[in-house]
Amino acid sequence: MTPPAINMSSSTTTTTLKNNAAFRMSLGDITPNNVGQLKRLNVVLFPVAYAPSFYKEILEVGEFAKIIYFNDVCVGGVCCRKETVAGSATQNLYIATLGVLAPYRRLGLGSKLLNHILETATEASTTPKVSKIYLHVQFGNEEALEFYKKHGFEVVEKCENYYPQFEVKDAYKLEKVLVASN
């Protein structure tokens, strides 16, 4: 992912920006009618081409897939997959994609998306309980690595040849444990 053209990460700017009426953000549901927006985002954001079945499943995971609007324009999204764990009453959550269009980075949109997933995962009403959330980050994507570490994720594994189709084939596996497994 290319870094944003302008670095606006200094804390003072960010706070004034967030209070500005011209900087509005809001989360939105993914529906069969707007899933085209998510597809378009993913084509631009990720080198992986996702199969139609991927988008079919997205429509089934409810709050674990969201898009985010900046000033009413759809600029980012997150898609998770629920995974049952054999012999356990809990489930795992895998973040398949999370991304924001380049011009809209460093405005807190990614954090808002991730926080939404974390909050939903720990909500009492979520059953079965989510024991951990995990994901993969390609080698060399320091920006993403920093982002997830900031939100309490830890590198647990180096997966060699995880992306066999790309030049950089290796990936980190990161996870965050929510409920100690029994």
Binding site: I6, M8, T13, L17, N20, A22, F23, F70, N71, V73, P103, Y104, L107
Partner: peptide, 18 residues
């Protein structure tokens, strides 16, 4: 400069250029 002019007074949202 992410502004409509070069005064640097206001940082416009990224949608402005769009």
């Amino acid at each position: 400069s992410q502004g409509f002019d070069n005064s640097g007074a206001v940082v416009e949202p990224p949608t402005a250029i769009l």
